[in-house]
């Protein structure tokens, strides 16, 4: 009887550690896949951002450069916000419960 109880405890502990391990590694891999997917979906905007930065560099110290720099910063902030929102949306869609926040977005509510 004692051996049976000890066996049950030992195998339960092993299953529990497997559970912790899978949740820890699984959530991290799932997040990487989601981030890569969202980055691929937003590739056109990322290229536009690079072009805008390149254009801003070409104008030296002129007024156009300042305007392009401002435009670049606005575009970059919007890009980051949209990227984080899209990743957060996909995290919720895939029910990854381990992640309670992404960037500035709280997912626990």
């Amino acid at each position: 009887m004692l051996i049976f109880v000890v066996c049950a405890i030992t195998f339960s502990a092993l299953l529990l550690s497997l559970h912790f391990y899978m949740r820890l590694i699984g959530s991290s891999k799932a997040l990487n896949i989601i981030e890569e997917q969202v980055a691929a979906d937003m590739q056109i905007r990322a290229h536009q951002l690079c072009l805008l930065a390149y254009e801003a560099q070409r104008f030296g110290n002129s007024r156009e450069k300042v305007a392009l720099d401002d435009e670049f910063q606005d575009f970059l902030h919007l890009y980051i916000e949209d990227y984080q929102a899209e990743v957060a949306k996909k995290i919720k869609e895939h029910n990854i419960n381990e992640i309670s926040a992404y960037g500035f977005i709280n997912l626990s509510k």
């Binding site: 405890i9 092993l14 529990l16 550690s17 912790f20 949740r23 820890l24």
Partner: peptide, 12 residues
């Protein structure tokens, strides 16, 4: 086994 499980649990 219990020690390792607790360690993994705390990390998680």
């Amino acid at each position: 086994v219990i020690c390792q499980t607790l360690t993994l649990g705390v990390i998680w």
